[in-house]
Amino acid sequence: MTTTTGSYLTLDDGRPGVRFTRTYEKPIDRVWRYVTDPVDLAHWFPSTFEAGELSPGATIRFFDDPNMPESVGTIVAAEPPRLFSFTWGGDELQYDLEERGDGGTHLTLTNVLLSADAAARNAAGWEVCLLALDAADRGAPLTEDHTGATPPWKELYDAYTALGFPSGAPVPGMDEES
């Protein structure tokens, strides 16, 4: 059985999104590096991430993703170590970090979607990426490619579609471009 941890939502402004929450036994400053440091991002984020500075309006470059062309995004918000948000491929990614009383950290990833039909596709992708982050957090090696349209992504996509997440958006690396 495939386990899904994401939720589909409509934000207050009407935009669609998918959201994931994780809890790490690490302090907030360490989890902040998981979502902002290129060395840590390489363990789980699907593209190489390069930013000169982490401040609103700064440009981020994304590259070395076998299923996506090189692209740029813009940092929307950066409030270390609690909030980091940026645009990527027409979507917005937001990481919210909250300290727990026991020294651990809650991480919430919200992917605000350009189009609702990307919900199942993106939820499956973030699920795979976050599984890789969870493994890196535990110090476990990543045993399979965490990008692309191959299992476990396909199983997760099918599971999210079965849960009623909107679907139908093209899948990079799987659907032919028109």
Rank of each mutant, 00 (worst) to 15 (best):
residue 79 E to A: 14
residue 1 M to G: 15
residue 176 E to H: 10
residue 123 A to L: 02
residue 63 F to S: 13
residue 169 A to R: 01
residue 118 A to K: 10
residue 153 W to L: 07
residue 89 G to D: 06
residue 137 D to Y: 00
residue 104 G to L: 01
residue 159 A to Q: 00
residue 106 H to W: 11
residue 123 A to T: 00
residue 117 D to Y: 05
residue 15 R to Q: 15
residue 82 R to V: 05
residue 155 E to P: 01
residue 113 L to N: 07
residue 46 P to Q: 04
residue 89 G to Q: 03
residue 169 A to C: 08
residue 45 F to C: 03
residue 85 S to N: 02
residue 161 T to C: 14
residue 14 G to D: 01
residue 93 L to M: 13
residue 48 T to F: 03
residue 70 E to H: 06
residue 178 S to L: 09
residue 40 D to P: 00
residue 74 T to D: 02
residue 51 A to Q: 03
residue 86 F to K: 03
residue 170 P to W: 12
residue 79 E to S: 13
residue 112 V to K: 06
residue 156 L to D: 09
residue 141 P to C: 08
residue 165 F to M: 12
residue 152 P to L: 12
residue 12 D to F: 00
residue 132 A to M: 02
residue 141 P to T: 12
residue 60 I to S: 04
residue 42 A to H: 01
residue 101 G to Q: 06
residue 169 A to K: 05
residue 172 P to H: 11
residue 7 S to G: 13
residue 95 Y to P: 01
residue 9 L to Y: 04
residue 89 G to F: 01
residue 1 M to L: 13
residue 82 R to Y: 00
residue 169 A to N: 02
residue 70 E to I: 04
residue 161 T to N: 15
residue 61 R to T: 15
residue 69 P to A: 13
residue 159 A to P: 02
residue 65 D to H: 07
residue 132 A to I: 00
residue 170 P to C: 12
residue 106 H to L: 14
residue 48 T to E: 07
residue 10 T to S: 14
residue 131 L to C: 12
residue 68 M to D: 11
residue 54 L to D: 02
residue 160 Y to K: 01
residue 13 D to T: 06
residue 74 T to F: 01
residue 178 S to N: 11
residue 155 E to N: 12
residue 64 D to Y: 00
residue 103 G to K: 03
residue 28 I to N: 02
residue 149 A to I: 08
residue 177 E to S: 13
residue 58 A to S: 15
residue 32 W to T: 10
residue 76 V to N: 06
residue 76 V to T: 10
residue 8 Y to H: 14
residue 149 A to C: 14
residue 16 P to W: 00
residue 176 E to M: 10
residue 112 V to G: 04
residue 178 S to T: 11
residue 66 P to S: 10
residue 7 S to I: 12
residue 53 E to Y: 00
residue 94 Q to P: 02
residue 53 E to S: 11
residue 127 E to Y: 03
residue 90 G to H: 09
residue 151 P to V: 08
residue 2 T to D: 09
residue 76 V to Q: 06
residue 65 D to M: 04
residue 87 T to M: 04
residue 116 A to S: 14
residue 69 P to K: 05
residue 111 N to A: 12
residue 119 A to I: 09
residue 171 V to Q: 15
residue 11 L to G: 08
residue 118 A to F: 09
residue 96 D to Y: 08
residue 112 V to F: 09
residue 12 D to V: 01
residue 15 R to C: 12
residue 64 D to I: 07
residue 33 R to Y: 04
residue 69 P to N: 06
residue 18 V to T: 11
residue 47 S to C: 10
residue 132 A to R: 00
residue 123 A to V: 05
residue 168 G to F: 05
residue 111 N to Y: 04
residue 121 R to Y: 09
residue 78 A to F: 02
residue 62 F to N: 03
residue 130 L to N: 09
residue 173 G to Q: 05
residue 161 T to G: 14
residue 168 G to R: 05
residue 47 S to E: 05
residue 109 L to Y: 09
residue 71 S to H: 03
residue 154 K to I: 11
residue 98 E to K: 08
residue 114 L to V: 13
residue 153 W to A: 06
residue 93 L to Y: 08
residue 134 D to A: 09
residue 165 F to W: 07
residue 7 S to M: 12
residue 155 E to L: 10
residue 168 G to K: 02
residue 96 D to W: 05
residue 96 D to F: 10
residue 23 T to M: 10
residue 125 G to E: 00
residue 51 A to W: 02
residue 119 A to E: 02
residue 131 L to Q: 14
residue 177 E to L: 13
residue 64 D to L: 05
residue 101 G to H: 06
residue 87 T to R: 03
